[in-house]
Design a protein around this nucleic acid. Structure first.
Lengths: 335, 335
DNA sequence: CTCCAACGTTTATACGTATAAGCACTTGAT
DNA sequence: ATCAAGTGCTTATACGTATAAACGTTGGAG
């Protein structure tokens, strides 16, 4: 109705559009906007290009760039959001910031259904430059697939170091060991450790229990779901150890509440140690003794390592292990 | 040293490689692997292509595909991991699954430094097909930029409906209102609400307080950092309301612990209501009355909506509001 | 025997970018 | 004046994919 130019498809402006607007070639636009040090462009032209890009609202097309350069600059983190604890999340956010500063982009890629090699294929499709993933999800075949599809740095993350790739580790046995040693020093005769029945955390629970066993080989394994009924039953069953590592602070609270209801005193009858050192730990009565986690791996240093591997300046040995958190006991009143 | 074929660059196989291996053209490979219904390929050839792709470990190049088709199939979620609560995270994971089923890919894009239009540019570079982002981060200019760069469905998420785009909302005033109404019905004369001083959640705190004010216009605003010292001071200051909405369960525990230390009884002297209904709520003594959140927005339905908007089958009115969670009071002993 | 339609496949092209290579022109040294 | 060495740009190309269009065969109808 109005004009002829109206019906022009309004698609996002490309570097060609910017070039046309600035009266230069597309190559010049690319040189200027990427500050390519090998290119020689006069300051006057640079200004014209930048102005045109700004005016048109030019945004480079990440896919096109990735296709051309061969890598996407993406660091993939295929973890479900809900599973990781708050501490780990804050650490991961810090990692994301550090990666940003180094020119990478951390992508939490929240996909869970695909298993084994199919999952690896899915990750590889994005041509990430690096990937940080649960050690258990990595097989020899999937690592090979990733590497051959251009992923330079594959990291595992989990309780155990991976034999396949460098890995970031939190050894849960140490956690149990730390708690158990304190309980023994405190004078406890029989130890026990709660192992949660909830899927997802049961593995960590079992590892922490094994750590307790390293100190007290005859420690009791107390399998428990997070429910008041089960806790009551456990306490009513009698024959309870006089020192219990309760897996974490929430389970500790569950246990202590059941003990109180049964008329038992903490720590006199049963000493209890939690883990995570949540803000509520020092609010409980008795105040909860808990395993605190100090982040040890500096995200910035980790990014440096990653960057070196990506650039090929360093070949990471498969056995490289980065400790994520150092467990430390905070002694209060419950044990 | 050994052979001549050794030094061939081992780059990820492309559809051309698959074509060569199967003795067909690259186009045929594309037709087969994408099950393109407009193409006619004999079953025998299909089989050959699939076999070759499998054997070579072919993985399609997402960037190349995105460049060709014009969209990446990505749904961007630029949220820091640490900020959202566990409930929200589980919901978001469910959303991710639903999106997967519909052929999209949810990407938690954890970048925080960029502000305003610069952030929008950063998002747009990935050419996402849709984006779900804090309502406060969206300006008129950034929405325009996103849309003009090909993002079909822009959603806001937050406490308030966005005037610019359809939004997913959890109205925190309702939360405060719900708690306050219960306290009043219970017989409390003077109400108060804790507003956390921690950055990031202070806004939600203020909104919940406003909700309390809708029921009790003269309600006291109790600004509080999460520290036992501050809580003690607050209680020692005297002149405390006889009914307090404590923002959430953790703050409730902080407050109750301070009240106990000061010799005050809950709920007789001061009634306390929490929120989030954490597992520990029913373990506290007295058992904590808390606002529970029921997820109301079905992720599958939301994905359907998103898909329709993306396909252009439906134009979402800017005012469209999707309620995320319905608050509901769980009455126990603390109020 | 011819012509047409259906079938199965190939050829050609474009998406937006980065960069190697080339080209015209200027400058200073010889 | 001549050449070498810059300087400031442009031209050309490739990355890997999806798909429109073209193409050669085959079978059957006329």
């Amino acid at each position: 109705m109005t004009g002829v130019t109206e019906d022009i498809q309004r698609r996002p402006p490309t570097s060609v559009d910017v070039a046309r607007a600035a009266g230069v070639s597309q190559a010049t636009v690319s040189y200027v906007l990427n500050d390519n040090p090998n290119a020689r462009v006069s300051e006057k032209t640079r200004e014209r290009v930048r102005e045109a890009a700004e005016r048109l609202g030019y945004v480079p097309h990440a896919s096109a760039r990735a296709l051309r350069t061969g890598h996407s600059g993406l660091v993939l983190l295929p973890l479900p959001m809900a599973r990781t604890g708050r501490l780990a999340q804050e650490w991961l956010d810090a990692l994301g910031d550090a990666l940003n500063d180094a020119g990478y982009t951390l992508v939490y890629y929240g996909e869970r259904k695909l298993k084994g090699i199919a999952a690896a294929r899915d990750w590889a499709a994005l041509r990430p430059v690096s990937i940080i993933v649960d050690s258990e999800r990595l097989t020899k075949a999937s690592v090979e697939l990733l590497k051959s599809s251009g992923t330079r740095a594959v990291f595992g993350i989990g309780s155990e170091p991976s034999p396949l790739v460098p890995s970031m580790v939190l050894d849960h046995r140490q956690v149990g060991e730390l708690a158990a040693r304190h309980l023994v020093e405190r004078g406890c005769r029989r130890l026990g450790a709660i192992v949660p029945r909830e899927a997802g955390i049961d593995v960590m629970g079992a590892n922490r229990w094994r750590g307790v066993c390293r100190v007290a080989p005859d420690a009791a394994r107390l399998d428990l779901a997070f429910s008041e009924d089960e806790a009551r039953e456990l306490v009513a069953g009698g024959d309870l150890p006089d020192g219990v590592f309760a897996y974490n602070d929430e389970y500790a609270m569950l246990l202590i509440s059941a003990l109180h209801d049964a008329g038992l005193r903490v720590p006199d009858d049963v000493a209890v140690v939690g883990a995570d050192d949540l803000p509520i730990a020092s609010l409980m009565r008795p105040r909860l003794t808990s395993v605190h986690f100090d982040p040890t791996a500096n995200p910035v240093e980790l990014v440096t390592l990653l960057d070196e591997i990506v650039r090929g300046e360093r070949e990471a040995a498969d056995g490289t292990v980065v400790d994520l958190f150092a467990p430390r006991l905070v002694v209060r009143d419950s044990a």
